[in-house]
Amino acid sequence: MALLLAGLVGIGLASPAVRLAGDTPTAQVSVATGFESALLPLSVTAAGALPLEPRPLTGWVELRAPLLQPDLHDHALTLGTRMPVRDRPWDVELGLGLREVSTANDIYRGTSVGSLLMARGGHFGERWTVAADAELWNGWATHVRTTPYARRVGGVQPVSGWTGWTSWSLRAGAVAGALVGPVELAVQLGYESRGRWNLVIPSLYGRVHAGIRF
């Protein structure tokens, strides 16, 4: 319940790299871009910290969409929470998230809803963070509607309905960030496994983000 609540109060995009203080409510709004399921997508994130005892809980909301070919049908909305295991500088943070991701292309329109499991381990200082970063995405349910074009030309079956697990990805990389006054600058990059026949080559992800705290 606390995780869900934290997710709901969070507003924003790329989750903070440097830990939000837990004793007083703090918030951050940030924007990010890079290479992440698209070339130069734009992410906007709002995050907040709940002063839960004994450890602070960070929640955030992120909206991400391709920037080069803007299309309201292509977007991902993520609701995430993260909590440190020990609340010490050298620490591990574990997180949970829910994501809705949609697309529309020549072949199908689709919406997936699924879960995120996140883990970070490293140094979480008051002004800077360097950590290893892992994230597992599973799309547990997907609504697919194939297009008339795909059925006519592509041999695709007429499908319109919910299907089960259709997607997963596993990220492993690193994140580094620093607070310069109220401004957080961070970079995150790594490898993303997306299946045996992945067409996104090289299978890397990377993003830079800038946020402001208030």
């Binding site: 391709p66 080069l68 949609s102 697309t103 020549d106 997607s167 997963w168 299946g195 045996r196």
Partner: peptide
């Protein structure tokens, strides 16, 4: 910067290309 290239990458979040069905469908994009 082509739309089809971005569409394939974005679509991989919904249909992971872990089998031939997903690959054959996705490559149609």
């Amino acid at each position: 910067g082509a739309e089809w290239l971005n569409d394939i990458a974005w679509s991989s979040q919904l249909l992971t290309m872990h089998d031939h069905d997903a690959l054959d469908l996705s490559i149609l994009i």
